[in-house]
Design a protein around this nucleic acid. Sequence first.
DNA 1: GCAAAAGTGTTTCCATTACACCCATGA
DNA 2: TCATGGGTGTAATGGAAACACTTTTGC
Lengths: 274, 274
Amino acid sequence: MGYGNVSERLRQPPQVGVSVVILALDPDSEHGRLWLPLVRRVRQPFLGCWALPGGDIRGDRTLAQSAYEALESTTDLHPSYLEQLHAFGGPDRSRGGLPMVSIVYWALVGEAEAGDFAERDNVRWFPESDLPSLDIAFDHREIIAYALARLRTRIEYPDIAARLVGPTFTLRQLHGVYEAVTGTVLDLPNFRRKMLASGEIEETGETLREGRHRPAAVYRYVPRRDAGERPYAYALTGDRLAELDARARSAAAAMSPGPGASSGDDALSALTTV
Amino acid sequence: MGYGNVSERLRQPPQVGVSVVILALDPDSEHGRLWLPLVRRVRQPFLGCWALPGGDIRGDRTLAQSAYEALESTTDLHPSYLEQLHAFGGPDRSRGGLPMVSIVYWALVGEAEAGDFAERDNVRWFPESDLPSLDIAFDHREIIAYALARLRTRIEYPDIAARLVGPTFTLRQLHGVYEAVTGTVLDLPNFRRKMLASGEIEETGETLREGRHRPAAVYRYVPRRDAGERPYAYALTGDRLAELDARARSAAAAMSPGPGASSGDDALSALTTV
DNA sequence: GCAAAAGTGTTTCCATTACACCCATGA
DNA sequence: TCATGGGTGTAATGGAAACACTTTTGC
């Protein structure tokens, strides 16, 4: 493919890719801080820098599918929430290469899952407040800040917090997530009432002992089928996500030689774009 | 450019473009309904159908600039608000051609400006509730619905309504906009207090006579510099928009032979993409 | 019994709602 | 002076915030 000099390249229509900001609760931190996985780049530009997991967009996939596949193949995680964040573009983000537009998604994964993740050389989790100081590729630092801001405003609903904490939880745990994410202090009794009144939370019948005191009731999140929670929400949750998951699995199976061997390191080899 | 058969084309990385949903108040309608301009396509696919104004993305422009230029060159309008809506993609929207991703913006223009617009063959304004029934290109009908839904949820702030109605307005006019957009009935006295309490509205000192009764005070919208109105807002307003406008003008001047002749029909020749 | 967290009750406060009312103006 | 919309006052409502309180458990 012959392209001209730099200024000619800049006038070309840009390439498109997807990236994903994957947010989870750090299970090692007692006070529930957020962390996220970054991938080390193995190509120029920004070789060796940390970048958001990403990949190409294929014409025969939806954008969400492309995002899911990028996420799943680099980190082996299965998000409980996936939503388009923003499309980023412009002259600042090309760095001498071809201009690039990234459609960025943000994803949430449950605490348990983020914990049982085995770290690899080219993927590492960083606490939200302790990102690498210099070597973050492109404008990914600002994109992360943007995703965190979105998370903080979206968390008014039980939904988001429940997806961060995992399938079941006590009200105190959920409360902790809210406090960690918003950085504020919330009255626990009022919080409890509000969550229960939302109708999106349901007792499992189990209880959880955690010290020499009264055990707490365990709840699960139940999306209300009220329909119109939020009038326009292109977020993927529940069944829609399972669908994407099934697709990703069958695609992986088709590419791998034997069954069950679909998560080799070749699939993990630093899928990153701008 | 040699591309293979259909299924091979579908696997190619998609092209990118911008489209804009331009919303305004229909000045002919007394009860303040919304309308928007669509452009007739002069190319396959969907030749002859109505489509959102759109254009290409250039690597040396920001996405918002590209959206502004698409909007300005097709309709000669100058929006008072411009914000990214969503990126649309996926296999459904290629129609046998190359796969296409559209980054869609939504824009607001003031009532006065939308009124003084001269209709042209290939651009026509349609009331929101009376879009062409069949011949809308691609998925643009759903995109319009999505933009309208966004407008309806965003309008809680004085901001959005003020930009629809124009630079100055009476509280009753503003009230009418709210009722038209939300489709609900609002108590006028309470509405008035709420707007004034927001601190984002300021008396101009003028009054407006409209019948054989007391004249109404005229107000203007004053964005509060409180900063954090909305925590992350990539919306363009005020100065930032003026900047885009200046850029678009100078670009147009550079392309046209004489001064002031920059809005010939060549610039209007149906810039539409998916 | 005692410590600690689970869970409940109650009061206060504030923003929204509903609606009655007065005011300014032109005909 | 009267019709009409501009503009103000105020009581009722409902939900969020603050915090005192009771209950259940392990040791």
